[in-house]
């Protein structure tokens, strides 16, 4: 696995020596990417913010043990994923009262395509809402893989390293996840045909 660029290494070294400013710089650099990932996992802004904050607390406390032979982003994605899976396990063990719709869709979407007509905007909004909902119906582990591969553009090798899982398992689970998505999205095929 390739090593991270020197600036990251330097920041990590400083952070491991107790330099809080270096930690803050790492947070500034990677918080947006971690948030994108967390939002697609959780489907809402509040849970995504909580997840990212918790992940950075774990990063901060575990930094002294971080071996610099893997990329920081791989490690960060692993921690965000573990926080998410831990949270889901806890939720399964206790009664949950959910008073608001979790899968709100694109309330937080910022990227509005230029020259997009109102009809196109509306269709895009609808597609994203359906897609986010479809991803939310996948088993937690498969959901994480789909988001990492298709939205964060991680390779199979990266996902394998992030989840500490054989690459063959990653591939077969991702295939199953895509087959499941195909089933879920089938009734909306017309809406997705223009993609």
């Amino acid at each position: 696995m390739e090593r991270q660029a020197t600036p990251d290494l330097a920041l990590i070294e400083r952070a491991q020596q107790g330099d809080r400013n270096a930690v803050d710089l790492l947070v500034t650099k990677y918080q947006a990417r971690a948030y994108q990932y967390a939002y697609r996992l959780t489907g809402n802004q509040d849970d995504a913010s909580d997840l990212v904050a918790e992940a950075f607390v774990r990063v901060y406390t575990a930094l002294p043990k971080f071996r610099r032979d893997s990329r920081f982003t791989t490690w960060l994605f692993r921690i965000v994923t573990n926080c998410f899976l831990d949270q889901k396990k806890k939720e399964k063990r206790r009664p949950t009262t959910q008073l608001e719709d979790d899968w709100v869709g694109s309330e937080a979407t910022s990227t509005i395509a230029e020259r997009e007509s109102p009809v196109e905007s509306s269709e895009r909004f609808e597609r994203e809402k359906i897609m986010q909902s479809a991803i939310g119906q996948l088993p937690d582990n498969q959901r994480a893989m789909i988001v990492m591969f298709h939205m964060e553009n991680l390779s199979y090798e990266d996902i394998s390293a992030t989840l500490d899982m054989p690459i063959g398992t990653v591939k077969s689970r991702l295939n199953r996840a895509r087959l499941a998505l195909r089933e879920i999205l089938d009734p909306y095929a017309e809406l997705f045909q223009n993609d």
Binding site: T109, R127, I146, H150, R178, L181, L185, A189, F192
Partner: peptide
């Protein structure tokens, strides 16, 4: 339809942080 689902996965917009 699998191919369509595969491609659709990558079309989500970035969300505002």
């Amino acid at each position: 339809s699998f191919q369509q689902a595969y491609q659709s996965c990558s079309t989500l917009s970035a969300v505002a942080v």
